[in-house]
Simulated assay, not measured.
Amino acid sequence: MLITLEGKTALVTASTGGIGFTTAKILGESGATVIINGRSQESVNRALDKLHSELPNATFQGIPADLSRSEGCQALIDGAGEIDILVNNAGIYGALDFYDTSDEIWNQYWETNVMSGVRLSRAFIPKMQEKGWGRVVFISSESSRNIPADMIHYGVSKTAQLSLSRGLAKRFAGTGITFNCVLPGPTISDGFAAMFEQQAAQTGQSMEDIAKDFIAENRPSSVLKRAASVEEVANMIVYVCSEQASATSGAALRVDGGVVDDIV
């Protein structure tokens, strides 16, 4: 299967590192013009420098914007112009007990993880409708179906993305636009590495071994028995952005290593 996205413009939010960066890179390799996004101009510039160095013939642009605020979403909308592919990757996570999770924190997670995707979708869907083609992808999580007791606020926001994606697929049925969620499980991303950097330094373990131990202790239902790479997750995202995925819409596509114990 050869995925070609020549002539398409893709926007990947929170794409200066991790899954978002790798998704942007593979979309660029596939021929799309890619707009990357991060909170600061510095982070965007670093990511652009790396992408241009690795893929000198691909086309990348960058727009700094904080998507936890409506003003930041509007700045990104104004800067991006017309797009064909929207990958809603912006999100925050962190463990916190239910009793320690204030209204302010709940609102922060809701604004970043859910409302950023609502706002961007509302802005970009009309032009996709006019063209009769578009792709909208929400990067959810296995935590959307396997709610973690130590970060309920995060799980709730990720479940909301499933409802949003499915609802949009029904609302815009027959338009040529597809809406899907991709559900990563434990992934060796920049965020994961930062969480366990100190442990790696103290023990000399590789990040892969640390991830295996984490999964054995915290996600024993995994059938992969290891963490995914960012490339493995990004490959699924890019596939659902492609022409080849034209019959897939309203779906929740798991890249969780079988963590969710479900046959559907």
Score class of each variant (00 low, 15 high):
residue 101 T to W: 14
residue 25 K to N: 04
residue 7 G to H: 10
residue 101 T to H: 07
residue 107 N to S: 13
residue 110 W to E: 11
residue 97 D to Q: 15
residue 134 G to R: 11
residue 56 P to H: 01
residue 70 S to F: 06
residue 118 V to P: 02
residue 117 G to N: 11
residue 120 L to W: 11
residue 70 S to N: 11
residue 102 S to P: 09
residue 22 T to C: 06
residue 58 A to V: 08
residue 134 G to L: 04
residue 65 A to H: 10
residue 38 G to T: 01
residue 29 E to P: 00
residue 104 E to S: 12
residue 40 S to D: 04
residue 4 T to N: 13
residue 71 E to L: 12
residue 114 V to C: 08
residue 29 E to W: 02
residue 74 Q to W: 09
residue 70 S to H: 11
residue 62 G to N: 09
residue 129 Q to R: 12
residue 117 G to R: 12
residue 19 I to V: 14
residue 119 R to L: 14
residue 76 L to Q: 11
residue 24 A to R: 00
residue 107 N to D: 15
residue 81 G to I: 07
residue 54 E to Y: 00
residue 60 F to T: 07
residue 7 G to P: 03
residue 26 I to A: 00
residue 106 W to N: 07
residue 48 L to M: 08
residue 90 A to P: 06
residue 122 R to S: 07
residue 116 S to M: 08
residue 67 L to E: 04
residue 108 Q to M: 13
residue 19 I to P: 02
residue 116 S to A: 15
residue 114 V to D: 05
residue 20 G to A: 00
residue 86 L to Y: 10
residue 34 V to T: 04
residue 42 E to Q: 13
residue 52 H to F: 02
residue 55 L to N: 12
residue 31 G to N: 03
residue 55 L to I: 15
residue 19 I to N: 04
residue 39 R to W: 03
residue 71 E to M: 13
residue 56 P to W: 00
residue 135 R to L: 08
residue 121 S to Q: 12
residue 70 S to A: 14
residue 10 A to C: 07
residue 32 A to E: 00
residue 19 I to F: 03
residue 56 P to Y: 05
residue 96 L to V: 15
residue 70 S to C: 07
residue 55 L to F: 06
residue 13 T to D: 01
residue 78 D to S: 15
residue 49 D to F: 02
residue 81 G to M: 09
residue 13 T to A: 03
residue 25 K to R: 14
residue 69 R to Y: 14
residue 27 L to W: 01
residue 49 D to H: 04
residue 92 I to M: 10
residue 94 G to E: 05
residue 65 A to T: 11
residue 44 V to W: 02
residue 67 L to Q: 05
residue 53 S to W: 00
residue 4 T to V: 14
residue 121 S to L: 06
residue 52 H to M: 02
residue 25 K to T: 08
residue 120 L to E: 02
residue 84 D to A: 05
residue 85 I to G: 05
residue 58 A to W: 03
residue 95 A to H: 14
residue 36 I to T: 02
residue 24 A to C: 00
residue 83 I to N: 04
